[in-house]
Every structure is written in structure tokens, then in C-alpha cells.
Nucleic acid binder design. Structure first.
Length: 715
DNA sequence: GAGCACTGC
């Protein structure tokens, strides 16, 4: 690499300021930081919370370090309010307004438990703004796990405040920044975006209050964020954190954030209390009557069907023999096209009843108004990660009480409803776990580890998590990152590879592939592949036209494998002038392709910022496959020549795997392949497969394969 | 010759 390249890499290294400033380590002095803190503290004193006339009634539980509130009666209505103002006052959260402001002022962390419909998400940021928390250029942040929620809540709040979205009230999601620095006071964003922001501003100094909403969902990025916020609090005592959760299991969170010293050191008046406050706000749903089975069901599918039919029989006054034809049954899952998803909102044909058979997309992501009956199987498909085999499995597993309540709540949104649980009450009470297993404890952790490393957190195994992940999973993640050359012998990010990988918002194996692609002169191609691999599928999912689809696929098929096939599709799509019509004809998902283009543009910007060269390898697919190999060498498999046709074994752990029938290499069965991911059903199927030469493996990861060869691999 | 958890940067 030339001198210019070196400098660019060095320039990059300082981009990850958290690492450079080492803000989370103990020895850090950081006078600049302290000056800023002083400024904040001084500022805050001058606009101390005005308790107003009514002081909230507080029941102080000193033992647990938790405050319980009983709300004062709601204040009488006054004149001069617009209807939107009246609506705001009718929300259950309104009568806790002063209590919430008092808690936030006096406690570093406040936990607000509120059911759906309490209004906490839209109102609390506004209360904080009204109380002055956004003065002096500071910003109130509110995070959400999902992009759609960010957009929806932000526009609602902008409307309530009578301001233009993107001015005082703004939002940031991937690909979309609708904020105005200096003007935006309330900012909604996904927790993933806030984590990315920490790479540039590790102490999140722009924010006076950070509200983490939907914390009960315990998503991977929410948990990482909470762990980091706890660290930030030590350096920024003036920062306020609000954790908002729908379940009462808030004590776990409370003890996590309780940093009060046991020996009772005198705390200065301006410092908030370190023990979190808990406040509970009631929801505003309608009554939902719960029904249980008397005996456990042996087949939940059968039980679900007969329950639906019996609801239908009971509630139709004229149960004609052909009553099934009166059912209007629709599927709902995320892989459906938008048009098919929108069908569920379509009016029900006259004389018919709509039945929606849904995955748990309907549990949190999508809200259907007007549901009266919910049938809850008691199961959902959940991802579990096995760190030993390094394989993620999708399994049907029992849901938690929290999920069951969430499902039932879907029946009571516009009027009272009923929920039929396909399990016994005894099972619900005694056997169902209160909450689901946090994602952190059932995921592959490579992305999570690299994010922490990028923030300068060296002791990953000792990191204080809201829920500790399995040590095996941590160790596996460290091993993978080490073999990729992303971390060194001391488990620190390598320069430049490690720092660059941390900058790219994708799975580290994909990021490594991109960086190798630039060195090998095929960056144009690898970022296209990276973008395509980041969407669920570029093919449409239509049933009944499989044959035509397969024939069309053959037009793009490349002997090298799926990645090269995707490149052919992308090129043809560009040649068509990015035509949606062309997509339709070729069974390509147009929306997925648009997302691919968006992602590709972002990756292009990032690689430009990293100063790496955007070159094309034209028709040389060998360098391309070598680049893929440098990222995915750990997913190498060899065909078992003398066993069942099409059976492969992974080099890493001798797992039995097969090429997925959707792959262009299905039935082709090259001797050596590399896969992108595995889907597990009755067998482990490799998805997105390319053929490789085994010599590339030792080239890409000499230590990894040197070590493995002696034990398991015989070429 | 398969089977369609869900998010997110």
C-alpha cells in the first residue's frame, strides 16, 4: 500500500473517537469533557425544575431504592385549549405530568411502566420540552426499536405541537435524517442510529434526556444501548435517562441502573439520586375477556382452526351449512409483498368475516384496529444461536406471559374483545415464563462485540449488561473476529481493517468481504453483493408459479453460484432502466431492489469516506469469489463424496449441511462451497452459495486453516 | 426439491 493509502487509513482511525479518547476507561482525565460537564451543571441549576403548585405524593421505598407514586386527581378542565390540547389532557399519562418531571429532575434514571395507549411515547418528550430540558441547544432524544414507529411518533408529536416535522421535532432513521441542528429540540430515532451516533460522540453530549422506549422488548440494540448509557451516566451526572417499558418487570432494570453507593456517601444537592425511580401509568385499552383450554391441546394448529370456526358459529346468527365460505382468510407475515400485506386493511366483503393468520408481526410491528377476537397458540418462531456449531436456528418455542398479554391486548383496541388461549390457565400461571429470553442471549454476537470495541471497551467479557450473554457466544464472537483479522492478540481492533469494519453498518463478515474487494479490485461488485445480501430476498414470493420462476431464474444463473447470479440480476435491472415493469416480468421484488440501491449508495459513501478505491473486476469472477472467501472462509463446506447425494460437511465443525433448493447450485453440488447463511428446518440448508477452490481458504485465513487441517480437514 | 419469526445500522 502506498503512502497516500496509509495516511487515509490513519485518518480513519481517529474517526472512531470513542476509541481515541478512551472515554470509558478509568484512567481518562478529559479536562475538555469536564469543562463541558460543568457548563451543563451550571446551566441546569439556573433552570431547575419548577415543581409548580402541586407536589406529587410520594411513597419512598428506601430499601429497594424505588419511588412509587399515587397520582393526584386529574385537574379540572380549563378554557382556551384547542381540541388537540384537550386530547392530550385526556391521555392517562397526563395526570402524571408533574410527577414524571419531578422524577426526571431528581433521579438519574426513571423507569416508566405504561401500557399501550397511555400516551407516554408522544407526551413525555413534550413535557420535558415544556419544562426546559431542550433549552440551551440541548436535545431530548426518544429511541424506538423500529423505523416505522420513529416516523409515526415524530409526525404525531410535530402535529400536536403545531410545528413542521424536521424543525423543532425531527427524526433520524437509516437513510433519512429529518432534523435541523440548532433547531430540533425533540428527536426521535432508532436505538441502532443512536448507537452509531456514539461512534462520533461517545458521551452523547448533545442530549439532555434520553428516553429508551419499548425497553421490554429487549432487542439487541436496546440492551447494548442500556449498557452503554449506564457507563455514560458515570461521566455525565447531568444526563437523564428514562426507560419506558410495557411490563411490570421493571425491577430488573431498576437494579441494573441502581448505582447508589451502599455506604451512603453524601451527595451534593445538584446531583440526582442514583437509585432509579419507577412510575406506573395505566393504559387505555378496552376490557378483554380471556378464555383458556380446559385440557392442553395436542395439536395447536388443529385447535386454532376449530376455535376460529366455533367463534364464527357462535356469533353468526344464521349458521348456514356452508359457513366456511363466509370466512375471508388472509395470511400475514413480513415476507409478503406490500400489496398482499395491505389486503388485511381492505374492507371485508359483505356478509363475510375477516380472519387473519399472522406471525408475530402483528404482535408489535403492525396494528390492526377493530380486532375483536384473538386466538393465541402460545407459540412463536424464535431464533436461537448455538455458539458451538455457530448456527442460528429458527424454532417454534413457547411464548412468554408478556407476549401473551400483548397478543390479548390486540383484541381490545376499539371495543371490548375476547382472547382464546390455546393452553390451560394452570400452564399460563405456573409454567409460562414472565418474559422472553433477551435477544442478547440467543444471538450471534460478532456485530455487538465490534460495536463495543469501536467504543473503546476492552473488557468485553466483564461488560455490565442488562442481561449477560452466554460466555461461549462471546468467546465464539471474539474467535471469529480474530480469525478475520478484525481484532488482534490483545482483542483490540486492528488498524486499519478493524476500524474500517466497525465503520461499515453490516455484519463484520460482509464488511471484511468489502474491504478485501477493494484490495482485489472488485469493490463495485462486492458492495452490490453486500447490498443484495442485506435484503431478505430479491425474488418475489408468489405461490403456484414456481415453474415459471425457476425458468426465469435460469436466465440469470451463473455457474459460480448465487452471488454472481445476483450480479447478473442487478446489471439487467440497471439495463432495464430500473424498471418496475421489468421486475414484475422477472419475478424480482421491486421494493427489495430499491432498498438494494439505497444500501449500495450508502456503502459507496462509506467506502469513499474510508478512502478505498471503487474499481470493477468486470468479468473476472475469480477475484470476486476470493474476496467473498476472505469474509466467509469460516463457512466453507466440502461435499461428502461417498455418502448421501448432496450432503456437505462444514470444515469448522463437521456439521451436516445441504444446498438450499432455491440456490442455483442446487443439484450442481460443487466439491467446495462457501455459504452466506444457514436456514434450519428438518435439515441445515445453506443459502447463497458459491463454488470455491480450497487453496483460497488457506490463502485467506492461514492460521484458521492451518489449525483446522491437522484435526479435521484432509484435502 | 423448500417453506415463507421479527427488527436494525
Amino acid at each position: 500500500m502506498g503512502q497516500a493509502g496509509q495516511n487515509e487509513f490513519l485518518g480513519l482511525t481517529s474517526r472512531t473517537k470513542a476509541q481515541a479518547q478512551n472515554v470509558f476507561s478509568k484512567q481518562n482525565g478529559g479536562t475538555e469533557e469536564e469543562t463541558r460537564l460543568l457548563h451543563f451543571t451550571y446551566y441546569k441549576m439556573s433552570q431547575f425544575w419548577k415543581p409548580g403548585t402541586e407536589k406529587p405524593q410520594i411513597l419512598d421505598d428506601e430499601e429497594g431504592g424505588i419511588l412509587f407514586f399515587s397520582a393526584p386527581p386529574s385537574s379540572s378542565s380549563r378554557f382556551g385549549y384547542s381540541s388537540i390540547e384537550k386530547q392530550r389532557q385526556r391521555l392517562p399519562v397526563y395526570k402524571y405530568r408533574n410527577a414524571i418531571l419531578y422524577l426526571v429532575e431528581t433521579h438519574a434514571t426513571s423507569i416508566i411502566v405504561g401500557e399501550t395507549g397511555s400516551g407516554k411515547t408522544t407526551q413525555i418528550p413534550q413535557y420535558l420540552n415544556e419544562a426546559g430540558w431542550a433549552e440551551g441547544g440541548r436535545v431530548i432524544a426518544c429511541t424506538q426499536p423500529r423505523r416505522l414507529a420513529v416516523q409515526a411518533v415524530a409526525s404525531r408529536v410535530a402535529e400536536e405541537m403545531g410545528v413542521k416535522l424536521g424543525e423543532e421535532v425531527g427524526y433520524v432513521i437509516r437513510f433519512e435524517d429529518l432534523t435541523k441542528p440548532g433547531a430540533t429540540k425533540i428527536k426521535f430515532l432508532t436505538d441502532g442510529v443512536l448507537l452509531r451516533e456514539m461512534m462520533d460522540d461517545p458521551l452523547l453530549t448533545n442530549y439532555s434526556v434520553i428516553m429508551v422506549d419499548e425497553a421490554h422488548e429487549r432487542s439487541l440494540s436496546t440492551d447494548i444501548l442500556l449498557g452503554l448509557l449506564k457507563k455514560i451516566q458515570r461521566r455525565r451526572p447531568e444526563l437523564r435517562i428514562i426507560i419506558s417499558s410495557a411490563t411490570i418487570e421493571a425491577k430488573t432494570m431498576s437494579s441494573f441502573f441502581n448505582t447508589r453507593r451502599a455506604n451512603g456517601k453524601t451527595v451534593e444537592a445538584i446531583e440526582p439520586r442514583k437509585d432509579p425511580a419507577i412510575l406506573s401509568v395505566e393504559g387505555r385499552g378496552f376490557n378483554v375477556q380471556i378464555h383458556y383450554l380446559e385440557e392442553p391441546a395436542s395439536d395447536y394448529l388443529q385447535a386454532a382452526v376449530s376455535t376460529v370456526l366455533s367463534i364464527h358459529d357462535q356469533s353468526f346468527l344464521d349458521p348456514a351449512p356452508q359457513h366456511c365460505s363466509r370466512l375471508f382468510v388472509l395470511p400475514l407475515y413480513s415476507g409478503l409483498s406490500r400489496a398482499d400485506q395491505d389486503l388485511i386493511f381492505s374492507p371485508t366483503p359483505r356478509g363475510k368475516r375477516k380472519v387473519i393468520v399472522s406471525t408475530n408481526i402483528a404482535e408489535t410491528s403492525l396494528t390492526l384496529e377493530g380486532i375483536v377476537y384473538v386466538v393465541d397458540s402460545g407459540f412463536s418462531k424464535q431464533r436461537f444461536y448455538n455458539p458451538i456449531s455457530d448456527i442460528e436456528n429458527l424454532v417454534v418455542a413457547p411464548i412468554s406471559k408478556a407476549s401473551a398479554r400483548q397478543r390479548a391486548g390486540r383484541a381490545g383496541r376499539v371495543r371490548s374483545g375476547k382472547c382464546y388461549r390455546l393452553y390451560t390457565e394452570e400452564y399460563f400461571v405456573n409454567e409460562m415464563s414472565a418474559e422472553g429470553i433477551p435477544e442478547m442471549q440467543r444471538s450471534n454476537l460478532v456485530s455487538c462485540v465490534i460495536q463495543l470495541k469501536a467504543l473503546g471497551i476492552d473488557n468485553i467479557l466483564g461488560f455490565d449488561w442488562p442481561a449477560s450473554p452466554a460466555p461461549e457466544a462471546m468467546i465464539r464472537a471474539l474467535e471469529v473476529l480474530y480469525s478475520l483479522g478484525i481484532i488482534d492478540d490483545d482483542a483490540k481492533l486492528t488498524s486499519p481493517i478493524g476500524f474500517q469494519v466497525a465503520e461499515i453498518p453490516l455484519d463484520p463478515m460482509i464488511s471484511k468481504m468489502i474491504l478485501s474487494g477493494s484490495l482485489l479490485g472488485c469493490l463495485e461488485e462486492v458492495i452490490t453483493i453486500a447490498a443484495i445480501l442485506s435484503v431478505q430476498s430479491i425474488w418475489v414470493s408468489v405461490r403456484g408459479v414456481q415453474k415459471e420462476m425457476d425458468e426465469v431464474k435460469l436466465r440469470f444463473a451463473a455457474a459460480e453460484g448465487d452471488h454472481v447470479t445476483y450480479l447478473n440480476v442487478y446489471k439487467a435491472f440497471l439495463q432495464s432502466g430500473k424498471s418496475s415493469q421489468w421486475c414484475y416480468k422477472n419475478f424480482i421484488n421491486y421494493h427489495a431492489m430499491r432498498k438494494v440501491m439505497e444500501t449500495r449508495e450508502q456503502l459507496k459513501r462509506i467506502t469513499q469516506r474510508l478512502g478505498i478505491a471503487l474499481k470493477s473486476c468486470e468479468r473476472d469472477t475469480q477475484v470476486l469469489r476470493k474476496a467473498i472467501t476472505t469474509g466467509f472462509f469460516a463457512n466453507a463446506c466440502r461435499l461428502e463424496a461417498f455418502s448421501q447425494a448432496g450432503m456437505y460437511k462444514t470444515i469448522k465443525s463437521s456439521q451436516e449441511v445441504y444446498i438450499h433448493p432455491s440456490s442455483v447450485l442446487f443439484r450442481v453440488n460443487p466439491k467446495w462451497v462457501i455459504y452466506n447463511s444457514i436456514v434450519s428446518t428438518d435439515r441445515h440448508y445453506m443459502r447463497n452459495v458459491i463454488a470455491i477452490d480450497p487453496s483460497w481458504l488457506t490463502e485467506a485465513a492461514p492460521q484458521f486453516y492451518h489449525h483446522q487441517r491437522g484435526e479435521k480437514v484432509a484435502y
